Structures are given as structure tokens and as C-alpha cells.
Simulated assay, not measured.
Amino acid sequence: MQTLNILENTTPSFNVFNVLANSSAINDKQNMSLLEQLQTTLSLEKLLDIFAMEAARYIQFSGLYFKSEIASKTLRGSRKSKQERHFELKLNNEFIGAITYGINSPISMNHYKDLQRIHKILLYPLKNALQYHQAMQLAMQDSLTNLGNRRYFDDQLKRAMHNANRQHEKVGLILMDLNKFKAINDNYGHSIGDQVLMQFSDVLRTCVRDSDSIFRFGGDEFAIIVEHASEDALDIIQNRIDGALKTNIILSKYQVGCSLGTTFMNRADNEQTLFERTDAALYREKMKTLASLSVV
């Protein structure tokens, strides 16, 4: 059975120091210490770690989860529990998010009050962290397609290669660009060109798994990082893209095609060597495509 509790400040102007001032002398030192720790980071993951250590003083939980319109985070090591207890967090009537505890036994009234107290201390650091997270997401996003941009690609490729080496798994890289995209812009205008780019982005989303990541570098250049890849994963994605280009109304109307370069990471690779090898594969495919089009 799930229970929902709403934690909301009802005073006209909420100030976390009011919480500290109104708390008992026994809790003052703990409150101030928690606030100081929470204010040391803008990382949602680290903020959740710090908060979880304090919450564990009052209740036993097997999982801790935070969800908002901006981000969702799960405490590392969270496990399934018998029950969940939800707390909505609001600051001056503004919904910040919800914290869920996975518990196996009821929460006492005293500990419930302790949770309410530390939730109030969490509110401002949490709001700041969410604003920072949102700003970073926007900085990593292509504004036209909402795909990741080149900066985000560089970060994610490094992470994916590190995880693949550690877990002894395959990671694949696909680089692609559209054939004769400049001609579409020249003949039909940049508005049509933008439509083509957005449609192509949507096609890519339908051709990959949730664990794969798609990026637009700018212009008509795109990339896909394929994690936990099987031997035929890159071929499967390529075949899906080829088929989707033919069935998409907009892309087929303007006869949009694309060239792809695909490569698996090897153990000697770094980010640069993997990218360069994939880029070379893309160049070879591009030359083949251009040669066949010129013959026609």
C-alpha cells in the first residue's frame, strides 16, 4: 500500500534558517550540519547521497527515490521493498519534486516529524541543484532536434568506453550524415531543411534501444553510441534506418538518404582513435554513395 504525504511550507516567505531557529536545541547542531553539507554540491546524485545518510538516522529504508519534472534519481543500492512512503516537496506553493522511501516497517510519528524537519532543510539546496541540472541539460542539447550535442557526445563516449572496459562489454559507434542535404536547403529553403533534420532525428529515435544515445553535431552530422552491444547490433540499427528512410513521408518525399560509418571499440582505443576510425569508415561509405549517384 502506498501513502502520499505532502510537505509544504505555508508561510508567505520560506527561509530555511527559520526552520533552524524554531527547532529544538537538541536538533540545532544536526540541522546546521546537514544544511552545510547539502550546500557543498549542486550534483543531484551527491545531494541525494548526503540526504540519505541523514534520513537513515531516523528510519530504515531499502530504497530512496526522487522524481520531479526536471529529473529523476535513484539512490545507489536501492532495492525493492514491501511498502513505499511518498512525500511531496513544495517551496512557497511551488512543487519541487517527490521523495519516495522504500520501507519494510511503518514509520513512527516521532520519526515522521524528523523526516518533515530534514525535508524542509533539503528544499533550497534541492531547488538550486535542479536549476543547475536543467541548465547543464540545456547546454548539452541541440536546440533544433533536442538530441545531445557534440559536447554531450564527448562526455558520453568517454563514459561508455570506460564502462565497456570495466564490464568487458562491447560498445559501438555510428557516425552518419545526410546525402546531398545542401541541395535540399538550396532548392527548398532552410525551413524544409529543418523539417528534414527533425524528421531524421525522430527516425533515429525509433531505430535504437533506450540504452543507446543519439547526438547531432550540427548541420546534417549525427552519431549514435551503442552500449552493451551484440555482434550484429550495428548492422541491425543500420538496416532499421535504411528501412525507416523509405517509409517516412517527409524523408521519402525529398529522397533523403544517409551514409553511415560503424565501428566497435577495441581495448586499445581511446575516444579519439575510436572516433577517427569510425569517421574514416563514414568517409569511405560517403565516397561510394557519391560515386553511385554520379553514375546514375
Rank of each mutant, 00 (worst) to 15 (best):
I118W: 02
L7K: 07
Q131R: 04
L245V: 14
G102Y: 11
E271H: 07
I184T: 06
R85N: 07
G63T: 10
R209L: 10
L282H: 08
I249K: 09
V296I: 14
M140T: 10
R284P: 00
I214S: 03
Q156P: 00
F181I: 06
V296N: 05
Y188A: 03
L293S: 08
F264L: 11
L178D: 05
K46T: 15
T100H: 02
N187C: 10
A21Q: 13
I96M: 00
Q255T: 12
N27W: 04
L138G: 01
S213A: 10
V296W: 04
M1A: 08
T262H: 02
L274W: 12
N31Y: 08
V295K: 10
A52I: 11
G77H: 04
K46M: 14
L123D: 01
G102R: 12
P106A: 13
H168L: 09
K73G: 00
R205Q: 15
M53A: 13
K73N: 10
L173I: 10
D269I: 07
R85H: 11
D142H: 09
L173Y: 07
G77V: 13
Q2G: 04
A268T: 11
Q137R: 10
L157F: 03
G172K: 04
K113V: 08
H111S: 13
K113I: 07
S43Q: 08
A229L: 09
N266V: 15
S68P: 08
Q60R: 12
F181Q: 02
F14N: 00
L147I: 03
R57S: 07
T74G: 00
D194W: 08
I225T: 02
E8R: 13
V256R: 00
T206S: 11
S78I: 11
L147E: 03
N165R: 14
V208N: 03
R76D: 06
N266D: 15
R85V: 15
D269F: 07
Q141M: 15
R151D: 01
V19C: 05
M1F: 04
T278I: 08
K288T: 11
N15P: 00
L123A: 06
L89I: 14
V19I: 15
S230I: 06
Q238M: 09
S43E: 14
G148I: 03
V16Q: 11
